Simulated scan of single mutants.
Amino acid sequence: MFTNIERWLEPGAQIKALIDPLFRLLTSLIFIIGGLGHFGQHDVMLDRMKESPWSGTVEMIGDPSVMLWLSGLAFVVAGVTLALGWMTRASALILFVTLVPVTVAIHVVPDTSHIGPLFKNIAILGALLFFWARGPGAYSFDNSGKALELTR
């Protein structure tokens, strides 16, 4: 019975192909918008970093302001390239490597109000691993010279 339900719910090949760019776009928007926030709300984000129990570690690694600018740049650039499906695996890894320390520094704190954002970031890390392992899927610049594979 459950097999029949699963079969009935499975989308067709064209819908599956449309999900690929939609998944890339929806995942990348959080990085593009958030990365722009690193520039537009720089002081607010610096204050949030200073409140973190990891602020001393962050300062030992480097200037928090410079790291905020660099992470914002990585989020925006790699977010756009992920959305386009261009250098998808590299973009996913850049975003992953940038998001891990941001997640630890900002969301791994004793304050329970950070549980939701922490697990949101964990889910996003999972999506990035998916792109790294599977590639861009259909309708991407990475696959523009190849025939689109509409079935998996």
Results as ranks from 00 to 15, higher is better:
L118V: 09
A90I: 11
M45F: 10
K50M: 12
V102H: 10
A138M: 02
A13I: 05
N4A: 13
A92D: 04
A74K: 06
E59V: 07
V77H: 09
V100N: 00
P53A: 12
G126A: 04
I32H: 02
G116D: 15
E6S: 06
T98C: 02
T57I: 12
F130L: 11
Q14F: 03
L118W: 08
R24Y: 07
G37N: 11
L150I: 10
K50P: 11
V80N: 09
L93G: 12
H42N: 08
P21Q: 11
K146F: 05
F141D: 07
P11G: 04
S91R: 10
A127R: 02
T103D: 01
F119L: 15
R7Q: 10
L46P: 01
E10G: 03
T88N: 13
G137A: 11
P53I: 12
S65C: 04
V44Y: 15
T112P: 14
V66G: 01
G79C: 04
P136K: 00
T112H: 03
S144T: 07
G62K: 07
S144I: 15
G79I: 01
G126K: 06
L150G: 03
Q41N: 05
T151Q: 08
D63P: 09
H42T: 06
M67Y: 11
I32T: 08
L99P: 00
L36C: 10
G56Q: 14
F23R: 14
E10F: 00
H107K: 13
L46V: 10
L26C: 09
K16W: 00
I106F: 13
V102T: 12
V58Y: 02
I106H: 13
L70Q: 09
P53T: 03
M45V: 10
E51P: 02
F119D: 11
I122L: 09
G135T: 01
L82E: 13
L73K: 07
